[in-house]
Nucleic acid binder design. Structure first.
Lengths: 210, 210
DNA sequence: TTTTGTGATATGCTAAACTATATCAAATGA
DNA sequence: TCATTTGATATAGTTTAGCATATCACAAAA
């Protein structure tokens, strides 16, 4: 790869990272194999135009041919848009949880609470959740635990239906997520609306788990 | 080729045409075969990134990844730069003559008058020669005739030197070109500075050619 | 009318993008 | 500390870009 393509490829990679996406996550969104994405980003492939556009669009980027004369002004415009207000670690958490929710919706198509949670987590990406990362992580826990349960318990996955108790936890998380959304939208200080303490699947009455 | 790449390829083609360049002329500038340029522009090839950048740069374009959010503003900036003030027919004439001058310079490396003419014709591209297209065509005639002479007369080409008479015509054209440049720079009305009537190689004393 | 230039298409060949799949070492998360 | 995720690399196969070269029909120029 030449220096000429380097700028474009670097822009692609840095945007992927800024959005908190791994190569595997981008692969899942575009169908381009992770190994090929790695090769592209490392400069080991002279990517085709259609592939470049596909990867760019998955990152909310558009390819544009700009008259050289207009390049400084265009760069200024692009710079003024600036990066996302949401910090990368928060974006990573959100992306992971959204991917998990997507898989759960595949396993349990009729669970509307999953759609509610998905909508909330998508909304979080456009809200300034920087300080609320811990809260988001708490919300994500029951989601991830249920995914683990689904993966390890073929009976549940096969029946495409969760035990009532798990659904209850998800509904509770959905309520907390909605409350957090409302708070972030109105920029209400976060001291009165918190999700419950850490959720654990193996938790039972009387046990002391700390 | 998909619709996605269509926009980029159309932009490339329309810019080439707006600059008054043929596919062969672009091929000469980049080394990409004319037949391949045709295939690319017709949508029959999914061009590689390095090739796209090479063709774009030959057309004074830069490739840019733009956040979708900034696209409207970027499009406005690009639009405000606008097209060249020089009309396409004039650009075509200029390009053809510049290509001819390039070949002549290869054949006669020591003729400084060719460099002077080249500089003038390059300058014309950035001046508003719209109304002076005829004048430019007149200037181009001796250049083209000499190219024909060079192609058909191996002795002259082999000796890498022109007969004194032809050099005289070129020098005259260079003087006229310089005068035209000065006039265009200062936007002086073109009624007092005109190149001489049409130049003809077969013209000899006493003949009446009109 | 003739000459020249143009974009499109063809053939045949080589190199490389792209894909599927697997695996590794290192980093990160729990 | 262990489990999970990550980016990089490998192999093997398929598809296609890119190139060289030639030629065509049509348009434009002279």
């Amino acid at each position: 790869m030449t220096y000429a393509t380097q700028d474009i490829i670097d822009a692609l990679k840095s945007t992927r990272e800024a959005k908190g996406l791994s190569q595997r996550a981008l692969s899942a969104r575009t169908g381009v194999p992770q190994s090929h994405i790695s090769k592209i980003e490392s400069g080991g492939a002279d990517i085709r135009l259609s592939s470049l556009i596909e990867l760019a669009r998955a990152l909310d980027l558009e390819l544009k041919l700009v008259p050289r004369k207009a390049l400084p002004a265009v760069n200024n415009v692009v710079r003024s848009v600036g990066p996302s207000p949401v910090p990368v670690p928060a974006l990573k958490e959100l992306n992971r949880t959204l991917d998990t929710l997507k898989r759960l919706r595949t396993a349990y198509p009729d669970l509307s609470v999953l759609t509610q949670l998905q909508n909330s987590f998508r909304a979080f990406k456009n809200l300034n959740i920087g300080k609320e990362l811990e809260a988001v992580r708490e919300l994500a826990k029951p989601i991830r635990e249920i995914q683990k349960l689904t993966e390890s318990n073929r009976d549940i996955a096969k029946a495409a239906s969760l035990p009532a108790e798990q659904i209850k936890f998800l509904q509770e998380a959905a309520r907390s997520a909605q409350a957090l959304r409302n708070q972030l939208v109105h920029d209400i200080p976060q001291t009165t609306i918190l999700p419950r303490p850490a959720y654990r699947l193996d938790e039972d009455e009387g046990d002391d788990h700390g």
